[in-house]
């Protein structure tokens, strides 16, 4: 049974696109057939993070408008043969998306793939609501700070009211993925704690991804972080999260800072 999973947050810049790529790659690595769909029409980034920006011919809007077939728009990843990308348009904007168009694309994707990950744009308007409309499950990306948590809460409320599943009275399964978890600030007590976040959002935790330079390096080379540096802390956390999505139970590891001796002696904290 195909699963449509929306990666959303409300707030911008928290790590939706990064997480969509990382989770998609991790799922594909375990043998699932995965497509990642970019819903951020006009400000597309998923193609950059996936390293496919020079191979985009047709995009989501072309398929919605019937200009191109789905098979013409799908781009296969060069590194993993069961990972595909459906990019967004850069020249149009979210008003070009229609409910029926998105619905028929999702229905067609369900016949071809095991996992359909929808990378939602930030905000609560048409782009975000259409990205979540046909979702079976949702991953809500949250940074451990107050404005992100409040926006995530708003999005959780919308998942329970604006999705097709909610309108039918069914339940969209939700997970919280905490990203950009700064271990040093957590140690000093300068960040919202995991317990606070979960108490406010009242949604099960999928994983905790530490803040890391590896993420920026990965997107600069156009690769999901789980592929570019599978041993890094964020990659391992994303892999665990993907396994939890597939139903495995893995103990949650709260990232801790490991500083080498030289770092401790000579390291300066970034401003």
């Amino acid at each position: 049974m195909a699963k449509v999973l929306v990666v959303t947050s409300g707030k911008g810049g928290v790590g939706k696109t990064t997480s969509t790529a990382a989770l998609g790659a991790a799922l594909a690595q375990s043998g699932e057939k995965v497509v990642v769909v970019d819903f951020d029409v006009g400000l597309r980034n998923l193609d950059l993070v996936m390293g496919a920006e020079r191979r985009v011919v047709f995009d989501l809007i072309n398929v919605v408008q019937g200009v191109a077939k789905l098979s013409q728009a799908l781009i296969r990843d060069k590194r993993l043969e069961n990972l595909w990308l459906l990019p967004a348009s850069q020249t149009r904007d979210k008003d070009a998306l229609t409910d029926e168009g998105v619905g028929s694309i999702i229905a067609e994707l369900r016949t071809k793939f095991d996992w359909i990950l929808c990378d939602s744009p930030a905000g609560i308007e048409r782009g975000a609501t259409l990205a979540m409309r046909y979702a079976d499950e949702a991953v809500i990306i949250t940074n451990p700070e107050v404005s992100s948590v409040r926006d995530s809460d708003r999005i959780i409320g919308m998942l329970d009211s604006k999705t097709v599943k909610a309108e039918k009275g069914e339940h969209v399964k939700k997970h919280v993925l905490i990203t950009r978890y700064d271990t040093a600030r957590a140690a000093r007590g300068e960040m919202l704690t995991i317990e606070d976040i979960l108490e406010i959002l009242a949604t099960p935790l999928l994983g905790i991804i530490p803040e890391s330079q590896d993420v920026l390096r990965a997107s600069n080379v156009g690769s999901p972080v789980t592929l570019s540096n599978a041993a890094s802390a964020p990659a391992r956390a994303y892999t665990d999260a993907a396994r939890r999505l597939m139903g495995e139970t893995i103990t949650m590891l709260v990232p801790v800072e490991r500083k080498g001796l030289m770092n401790r002696l000579l390291g300066r904290r970034a401003a």
Partner: peptide
């Protein structure tokens, strides 16, 4: 029976 979310 469920929490009231932001914006509701």
């Amino acid at each position: 029976e469920s929490p009231v979310r932001s914006g509701q």
